[in-house]
Design a protein around this nucleic acid. Structure first.
Length: 893
RNA sequence: GGGCGCUUAGCUCAGAGGAAGAGCGCCUCUCUGACGCAGAGGAGGUCGGAGGUUCAAGUCCUCCAGCGCCCACCA
């Protein structure tokens, strides 16, 4: 709560309403329920209308949603609601992801509390548990999405393990299998010894850790000194099959082709030459362990070396490692190092910073490990997916992500798609006893290759990203040729985070092109990452995670959270720092809007828009605010089209607060509180107040849907809900340059009077008697609007100077060609002098700068004529101002 | 080792070649009949540093520094 002084309680307004701030909690759930009941979220196929479609990036069912989801969903809802109002048949499809490994990790954490693992339950029981989990967290997620006001099509909600979706995923696999893109075999992959599965290269998190480099001597088999190698992983020495050096390394030229002895196991292994060895690293000699290192694996294969394995799937030393059998890999590392030292084979040990790969999900150090794996060839899939982005058929926003995408796609590796997990889409392949594989929807009776009838389905499931790659079309009924698919595909925009451009965006583009023959979406908007106010990543485990719903229920409401996030969602920054202060700002805005609307309603009486408005009855101010509103429509619409969401929010914020409320409403009061107000004038004011507010609500609605609906329903309006009201168009209000110019003069004069009065130490309500002097046309304008200027400036004695009559002492200034002055009492002469002196100094400095420029021949000859002209005008204005200020100052003495 | 982003008022951020902006915070005033979650008026930036291009540079170019992100098999 702010520390503002508390005001007397129980005050009521003229219409008897209690003066309490807008309370979103009383409005939002009720409005959402009405929208649901109105069926506005559902978008059935309708060939007479243009479709607009967004597929929600499916949240994992691992828990509740975080601030990143709140932002991501807000942007999608913003786009959906905007396009719906524009007349598109807008469909936003919600759903959730079974997220195999992520869900496994959280479920197993739960099981671990009872001292159990998934293996204690067994596949079947574990899957039951998974479905219960899904029911619980799926519902939680959907209720959070609803509470934020999101207008998703709930009739189409999809889960990646729904039967139809499951079948579509299997169909994708089978088609790729048919084309020969899928291959199977023993491969070295990233293995998580805790989760007991492979993970793809993209799911490895590299972290720098302090480690050691051991320099270990491998004695020559011939009794010679042999060679010294450097290693961080002494335990893998037991699986060494060679030592490699660079072929051009003269230090070892004599050794290549001879043998050295692997310490501890006393195995004789060859010294080989290979260009992949970096002679500058360590000693230039590399021990080769094909069973436990990717580079060694490659080198070993090239030289036909055997593969030895000394670690099991849990990262423990195997039974064949003698004294080390059963030790954990880290324990074994120390033990082996100790034994090497005892044997006098460690030449030295130095500290070394190295990158270790951690499991993205459980942070366990990953192990390069050889197991039976399924891979998907990517080259043929990637080629068209590169082309469509190059051709602009898929566009990234901000544009810089295009290069990130292309760089990765151009160097794409084959994709390890199998996971040794249970919750997911089981690979539809059967292995026969003779080692053949048969892919299909059902278990084959016998093996087509050998006729064998002993067939077992593959145990592994597909990578969760394999199933989500089909999201844009599997949700629409594919592989069937459905009306939904024909109508909504390709979808319009994908809104997502940069962390899954490779994992998900790239794969959707590849799958879409491969299976449907067209891009899955035409635009990709990469939203910023939400960080906390210190600029740190939000993370539950670090205790820095923020629950968006906490803030909502604390009283800020969903609209405030949506507006706060939108206001800071710019394309310039890749992160968005979120703090509670931002919610206060926007909550205050909502309250301002609410109260402005209350003012309008108070004065609308029995006004109906049908009465129309006569242009002749419109004041300068009516024309001005309509002109500003007209510009606003253009700006907001253009910014939405350009994905500049912060600009959308800011334009609306500034318009409502700084123009509509601060000026138009205040000016309208001058007339509305006039006892003898002409009914025709009243109608014009009512019409303007209503028209601009009603239209602005429509522009605001995509960002803050609940409050705009609440207000809109209380105003004269057409239609059942603001969410299906038309989007304001450029024809709704005309820009009026003359009105804007006139208004600029009036606001400048009002501000000048307020400023001078404040500088003279007069309270805002103290009446003053300013004297204005201006050229004929401006004077005419000001005289015509003197009541308004006088009221806003609290200057009942406003006068116009005819000749050179000036009070004895006065403070004055010139704004917009108008000389404004206020008489000064003797006691205030010092204050007046201070103000005039400061303003004069500033004006003089600026005048000098301008004169200097105008004396610069290069400037005069090279700058565009209008720039020079502008400077000449400025010079004249400044000369006038300094002259006037100096006059007032001199008179004070 | 490459690539990308950021560095503007105490804080969070707009601005992308022609006179430094917003919100919050701070200081003065104000119990005005929409709103104190408010109104009025202020103070406060040599726009990270150094060069350069230009008549003119937060704004374009080069280099440097700090912070952050991504990619890469260096034992």
């Amino acid at each position: 709560m702010s520390k503002g002084r508390s005001r007397p309680s129980g005050r009521t307004t003229a219409v008897g309403e209690r003066k309490t701030p807008y309370n979103p909690l009383a409005v939002e759930p009720r409005r959402y329920q009405e929208w649901l009941e109105g069926g506005y979220f559902h978008a059935p196929v309708d060939p007479t209308r243009r479709p607009f479609c967004i597929m929600m990036p499916l949240p994992n069912i691992t828990g509740s949603l975080h601030m990143g989801h709140a932002l991501n969903h807000t942007i999608q809802d913003l786009l959906t609601r905007w396009r719906r109002m524009q007349g598109y048949n807008a469909m936003w499809l919600p759903g959730t992801d079974h997220a195999s490994i992520a869900t496994h990790v959280v479920m197993e954490r739960e099981l671990a509390k009872e001292g159990k693992t998934r293996f204690d339950l067994g596949r079947e029981k574990f899957l039951e548990f998974a479905w219960q989990w899904k029911a619980k967290y799926g519902d939680l997620i959907y209720s959070q999405i609803r509470r934020m006001g999101n207008s998703c099509d709930w009739d189409r909600v999809t889960f990646t393990m729904d039967p139809a979706y499951y079948d579509a995923v299997i169909e994708c696999f089978l088609r790729l299998y048919q084309k020969g893109y899928i291959y199977y075999g023993k491969r070295m992959i990233n293995w998580c010894p805790k989760d007991l599965t492979s993970v793809s290269d993209l799911e490895v998190n590299y972290q720098t850790v302090q480690s050691h480099l051991w320099y270990v001597r491998y004695p020559g088999a011939d009794g010679g000194g042999g060679v010294v190698i450097a290693t961080q992983r002494p335990e893998t020495i037991l699986a060494d099959v060679a030592v490699a050096v660079h072929p051009d390394d003269e230090r070892y030229a004599g050794l290549v082709g001879r043998q050295v002895i692997v310490p501890i196991v006393h195995r004789r292994v060859p010294v080989i030459a290979d260009r992949r060895v970096d002679p500058a690293f360590g000693t230039g000699a590399l021990k080769i362990t094909p069973g436990h290192d990717p580079l060694d694996h490659e080198i070993g294969a090239a030289h036909g070396l055997p593969v030895l394995v000394i670690l099991d799937e849990r990262g423990r030393m195997t039974a064949e490692t003698g004294a080390y059998a059963g030790m954990d890999r880290f324990e074994a590392r120390e033990a082996v190092a100790r034994d090497l030292e005892a044997a006098g084979l460690v030449e030295r040990k130095e500290p070394y910073a190295t990158n270790v790969g951690l499991c993205d999900r459980c942070r366990t150090v990953l192990e390069p490990y050889i197991t039976d794996q399924w891979f998907c060839r990517m080259e043929a899939l990637a080629r068209p997916a590169i082309d469509v982005v190059r051709q602009g058929r898929v566009r990234f926003h901000p544009e810089r992500w295009t290069k990130v995408y292309l760089d990765w796609m151009e160097h794409i590796h084959d994709w390890n798609i199998s996971r040794r997990l249970w919750f997911g889409h089981r690979i539809p392949v059967w292995h026969c006893a003779n080692g053949h594989q048969v892919a299909g929807r059902q278990a084959p009776v016998r093996c087509p290759h050998c006729g064998g009838s002993d067939l077992q389905q593959e145990e592994q499931i597909l990578d969760t990203w394999f199933s989500s790659a089909a999201w844009p079309f599997a949700t629409l009924g594919w592989p069937k040729d459905t009306p939904d698919l024909r109508y909504f595909y390709p979808t319009s925009v994908l809104v997502t985070g940069r962390d899954i451009i490779f994992l998900w965006v790239a794969r959707m583009i590849m799958f879409g092109l491969e299976f449907v023959g067209d891009v899955p979406f035409t635009d990709v908007y990469i939203n910023p990452t939400v960080l906390n106010i210190q600029g740190r990543r939000m993370s539950k485990s670090l205790g820095t995670g923020l629950d968006p719903l906490d803030y909502v229920e604390q009283g800020y409401g969903a609209d405030a959270l949506r507006f706060a996030l939108t206001l800071r969602c710019s394309q310039g920054q890749q992160d968005l720092r979120f703090g509670e202060k931002m919610l206060e700002d926007v909550r205050n805005f909502n309250n301002k809007l609410w109260n402005a609307a209350r003012f309008v309603r108070m004065h609308l009486g029995d006004f109906t828009p049908a009465a129309g408005v006569r242009p002749a009855a419109c004041s300068l101010f009516d024309r001005w605010i309509r002109s500003r509103y007209g510009r606003l429509i253009g700006e907001v619409t253009a910014s939405l089209e350009a994905f500049d969401f912060d600009k959308v929010a800011r334009a609306l914020y500034d318009f409502v607060w700084s123009e509509y409320c601060d000026w138009y409403v205040e000016l309208a009061k001058v007339d509305l509180y006039r006892p003898d107000l002409d009914p025709v004038r009243r109608l014009a004011i009512q019409h303007t107040l209503w028209q601009v507010l009603e239209g602005t609500l429509r522009l605001l609605h995509p960002i803050i849907p609940h409050i705009t609906e609440e207000i809109w329903q209380a105003l004269p309006h057409q239609g059942k809900s603001i969410m299906i009201a038309p989007w304001p168009g450029l024809g709704d209000a005309e820009v009026d340059e003359a009105a804007e110019e006139g208004m600029a003069t009036i606001t400048a004069v009002v501000r000048a009077i307020r400023s001078m009065r404040a500088d003279l130490g007069m309270a805002p309500q103290t009446p003053v008697a300013p004297v204005l002097r201006a050229g004929d046309r401006t004077r005419e304008l000001l005289e015509a609007h003197r009541d308004y200027v006088a009221t806003l400036a609290r200057a009942p004695g406003l006068a116009f100077a005819g000749g050179g009559v000036r009070p004895r002492w006065a403070v004055g200034t010139v704004v917009e060609g108008v000389e404004v002055s206020i008489e000064v009492a003797e006691a205030d002469r010092a204050r007046a002098r201070r103000r005039l002196t400061a303003e004069l100094a500033a004006a003089k400095a600026e005048l000098d700068r301008t004169i200097r420029r105008l004396q610069d021949a290069a400037f005069l000859s090279r700058a565009p004529a209008e720039v020079v002209e502008e400077d000449r005008r400025r010079e004249a204005v400044l000369r006038d101002r300094t002259h006037v200020l100096a006059g007032y100052l001199a008179a004070l003495d």
